[in-house]
Structures are given as structure tokens and as C-alpha cells.
């Protein structure tokens, strides 16, 4: 696992989640699950982040914010959609103010299912995201990305 040699930083944004997935993302960083042992730190600054963790679906008000955060992140970058709302809109799919999953606005690399997504699956998603990050980095070095 060559990707464990890197210490990727994550940026978390709550698009229109019900909070359930947000607190599970935070719970990943606390002693029971402790993502920090993989060198992963939750940062508030998009310019320092490698992974963007987004919970919740997109609406008109926040799609600009999501796009802006994504564009501010340096390449290579990976987007992880956490929870069923971020994947497809979930239980709120038919709400009038929901446009759909995160992939309607920005490209998503890893989809984490669940309502709310369990910390174990979020960690799994992040580790999968690291693999994607490594691939993108290699492609960048070869000049094919």
C-alpha cells in the first residue's frame, strides 16, 4: 500500500445533509475510530486539502459553494460523496429544493452509501479515495492527466 506513505488532509463540507453523516464524519476523527492514525487531518482550508468529503445533496443556494471549494483545491484531488443523499439525493430526492447528488455539480470519485453512513464505511471510502489520489498523482507525473 504505497498510499500509506502520504498524509492526506480532508476538507469536509455539509451541502444539505441532515447532520447525521456530518457527526459520523467527525466521529471518525475521535478516539474510537481515530482517522488521525493514518495521518489524516481535518482541515478547514480548501487550499490545503487533498480529499473533499461532502455530505448531503445539492441545492441552488449551495451549488456555488460546492463548486468554489472544489476549484480552490489543488490537483490532484479526490471527491468522496458521503451518505446516500450525497450519492443520489436519498430520502430527499423528491424535495422541491434538491437538485440531486453531488455528481450533478462536480465529479465524484468515491460513493459511500448509508443513511447515516457508518464511520467504518466512511473510513473505507476515504481509504479507497487515497487509492484514486495515488493513481491521479501517477498520471500527473506521466503527464496524462
Amino acid at each position: 500500500m504505497s498510499y500509506s506513505t502520504k498524509s492526506p488532509w480532508i476538507l469536509h463540507y455539509d451541502a444539505s445533509s441532515c447532520n447525521g453523516c456530518d457527526i459520523e464524519v467527525l466521529a471518525c476523527l475521535t478516539p474510537l475510530y481515530d482517522l488521525e492514525r493514518f495521518g489524516i487531518i481535518n482541515t478547514g482550508d480548501p487550499k490545503q486539502a487533498d480529499l473533499l468529503l461532502i455530505t448531503g445533496a445539492v441545492n441552488d443556494q449551495n451549488k456555488g459553494v460546492v463548486k468554489q471549494l472544489y476549484e480552490q483545491m489543488p490537483e490532484p484531488k479526490v471527491v468522496v460523496a458521503v451518505g446516500i443523499c450525497a450519492c443520489s439525493g436519498g430520502v430527499f430526492r423528491e424535495c422541491y429544493n434538491i437538485l440531486g447528488g453531488i455528481d450533478t455539480v462536480i465529479p465524484v470519485d468515491v460513493y459511500v452509501p448509508g443513511c447515516a453512513a457508518r464511520p467504518e464505511s466512511i473510513i473505507d471510502g476515504v481509504v479507497k479515495g487515497l487509492e484514486v489520489l495515488e493513481n491521479k498523482l501517477n498520471k500527473m507525473r506521466e503527464g496524462t492527466l
Binding site: 455539509d14 451541502a15 422541491y96
Partner: peptide, 14 residues
């Protein structure tokens, strides 16, 4: 505010 508005009260019709 308005960043996480979903409008779930209206789902009551469906």
C-alpha cells in the same frame, strides 16, 4: 441561511 434547505415538509404530499 438557506444552504441546507431541502423542503421536506412538502414531501408530506407524496
Amino acid at each position: 441561511i438557506g444552504y441546507v434547505h431541502r423542503g421536506l415538509e412538502k414531501l408530506v404530499e407524496k
